[in-house]
Design a binder for these strands. Structure first.
Lengths: 207, 207
DNA sequence: ACGCACGCTAAGCGCCCGCTCACCTTGGGC
DNA sequence: GCCCAAGGTGAGCGGGCGCTTAGCGTGCGT
């Protein structure tokens, strides 16, 4: 439960794929603004001025304010899914894989809290189509974690009565980190990741 | 871990204390609107029309839209705290008290999901003074749960390394129910409460 | 050397927001 | 029967919203 070889706390900004530079600056500004004040309370003027540009500049790179949220949400969910897949598909016992998955997932939610907040809590601000796309990614996230837990149950390593419910609870626990985690607080993302990995192993009754 | 004698799922509307009748109808309308679309995305016209009144009627009973949120948040936190205190101070072993606390707290977050959503997720929309008042209530919520866990550790019934961190995780798990719970979904509030009480007893290593 | 595509800005349009105000009903006390 | 407080309405205010448009500067291909 202690090894932390995976990325995730990795402090590199994952927005490198967004080009050109001005579009990326606007997107990063939007992440900060949405995380601080919420999507609906954020104005396009606020986003533009954080990026050092005029309000109209936003519309050169994005059709609407909602497209910004959609792009952020899409990239964030891709990253979260990638983190879980990497942990789920490494070699090792179900307990090791689950601890790795929870540890890296929590480190991401804590270390990249602004992004995670937008990704996890602003889903309802998306229109129906974008929302449906993101919900598809969430089902894949759920499937990865459920897969690990099922493996542990099948091998007799875990003791779980309600696999779906426990999966939901594990993900719920990780996701809520984005709500309460404070970078100035007493815990580092690594510490929270380690604590949560331990707690989750207890939840599944790992031997 | 199975007994569920406590209230909390109790379906009586807790808004009886709000008078006169028109003020209560406006407040209930605001809870629904805030829960569905968020505080900032909700208009005063929407609240008033849900209550069957004109937009101006709102300002007879409340000074501002924010006062509505403040009242909702205050009453909701009082209720949540009351639920936890009742469970924490009953007689019984730490494990029984913790299971009761988690069970009733979760049943409230699931059964009264609209209120819980507003209470737990719209805190940042309050001004500094109201925010500080509510944060004080949250510290009392934390203290109640921490107290039970500390009792269990002291009596040797629980095995917990990080009491503060585990308390945070337990509350976090319960609170996030308000985000994902769907009244039309496969689980009843009672079922989720029972599942979560079991999971939390595992988290604290209850004998 | 020059044109023009591209990235950006200043200005502003139409709309809807939170909130106010002048006025209208209604029901109980005398 | 009359009055007035309490509770309601319709109209509308000042302002800020998301977004558009006309035009400007600059760098690159030729």
């Amino acid at each position: 439960m202690s090894t932390a070889e995976e990325t995730s706390g990795g402090e590199m900004e994952p927005w490198d794929e967004v080009t050109p530079d001005a579009a990326r600056r606007l997107l990063v500004a939007a992440v900060e603004a949405f995380a601080e004040r919420g999507y609906h309370a954020t104005t396009t003027r606020d986003i533009a001025s954080r990026a050092g540009m005029s309000p109209a500049a936003l519309y050169i790179h994005y059709k609407t304010k909602e497209e910004l949220l959609h792009r952020i949400s899409r990239i964030g969910h891709d990253k979260a899914l990638d983190i879980l897949r990497t942990a789920a598909r490494r070699e090792g016992s179900p307990a090791e894989r689950l601890a790795d998955a929870v540890g890296s997932f929590v480190r991401w939610h804590a270390g990249r809290r602004t992004t995670a907040r937008v990704v996890q809590y602003e889903l309802d601000a998306l229109g129906p189509d974008a929302r449906a796309e993101i919900l598809g990614l969430r089902r894949q996230v759920d499937a990865e974690v459920r897969g690990i837990i099922q493996d542990g149950v099948a091998s007799g390593e875990f003791d779980v009565l309600d696999v779906h419910g426990t999966t939901l609870a594990v993900l719920s626990l990780c996701i809520d980190v984005a709500r309460w985690f404070n970078i100035d607080g007493p815990r580092t993302p690594d510490e929270v990741g380690a604590l949560y990995a331990d707690l989750v192993l207890r939840m599944v009754g790992a031997k």
